[in-house]
Design a protein around this nucleic acid. Structure first.
Lengths: 175, 175
DNA sequence: CCTACCTATTCAACTTGTTGAGTATAGGGG
DNA sequence: CCCCTATACTCAACAAGTTGAATAGGTAGG
């Protein structure tokens, strides 16, 4: 149970509709916690049912009506309790590393292509984060999570460059 | 469907029983792909049913009988195909970052404690990986994934130190 | 001999996360 | 006027991951 908490944390920084949350998750947070819109709507419903968030219907002029969610007192309380509990260690699921484990029995060329794609993606992400950093205020939480993203991608780029070097340089994968 | 592939990759480096696989996953691989024994047994069954792995019963002298799994030709084939497909981007789920997002409405002291625990854990992991690196052969796949673990933890340590500094140094989290 | 602890595996129930499709409102472009 | 796109949300089915417990053989220690 933890997307729940990610939602609570997101709402603690300001009310939002499901749709808006989905975007926030996609932009700022996707790299350490991802969720599809469907998941968000489902969890918002549950949170509402459990009394941790409240919905308010907002009719808009030039757009479809939306439901905007806010934390209730119980929601704030639940969030504080969550923060107090020790965090479970980060779970990483990185398919590329699995593929890499099988270099010797697989297609090294495909892995080179994969590494190049990864490198490109990391560079884009990094650039995006750096832009956000320049624009962003000095709220501690968002700053530190942004730095996590930046440092993670920097390290990722370095590692991927090492991979490329080894995959290309020494053709002796089968040594 | 991807623990399947992680299992195939693991078996491509040598036959193993479910129990042995569980240990391998726990030691070497846990940081980029984790699985409980139950999950492994379940997936091994499916892989067997689908003809990608074969089981061989091995009776042991001083221990309970075990079933040792090997890749079949179809299994090798499936692994090669998996390696050729582009990898989906890594999914990270890091609870600590979620908690950090809520610093302002939560207990900063608990977060300091959490950061310290994270730091300790990362240092242990790093030491373990470095030991493995010294012992290990020069197979490319394992080498690169080990390096991924090492670089990841190094970066993690740096970031966590930054977090501690900010959480402690400037007590003005609510600025 | 009884207990505790590894090895080795299985069953069942549950929570999360993923995928694909589908509804509806409204604006802009051709 | 029709289609495309963006907003805003919902339903259903499924795949993957988690948790807790149970079974069972064997060894070592008190």
């Amino acid at each position: 149970m933890s997307l729940r908490h990610a939602v609570l944390a997101a709402l603690s920084r300001g009310e939002a509709s499901g749709y808006e949350l989905a975007k926030r998750f996609d932009v700022a947070v996707a790299d350490f916690w991802s969720a599809t819109p469907q998941q968000l709507y489902r969890d918002l419903e549950r949170l509402e049912r459990d009394g941790l968030v409240e919905a308010r219907v907002v009719e808009q002029r030039r757009r479809p009506t939306k439901r905007v969610f806010t934390l209730t007192a119980a929601g704030h309380q639940a969030l504080r309790e969550f923060v107090r509990e020790p965090a479970r260690p980060a779970a990483i699921r990185d398919e590329f590393l699995v593929k890499l484990q099988a270099v010797e029995s697989g297609d090294a060329g495909a892995l080179v292509a994969g590494a190049e794609a990864r490198l490109a993606r990391s560079r884009e992400k990094l650039a995006g984060y750096e832009r956000l950093l320049a624009e962003s205020g000095d709220d501690l939480g968002p700053y530190l999570t942004l730095m996590a993203g930046i440092m993670y991608e920097q390290q990722n780029i370095q590692w991927t460059e090492l991979v490329l070097q080894r995959l290309r340089g020494g053709e002796d994968g089968t040594a």
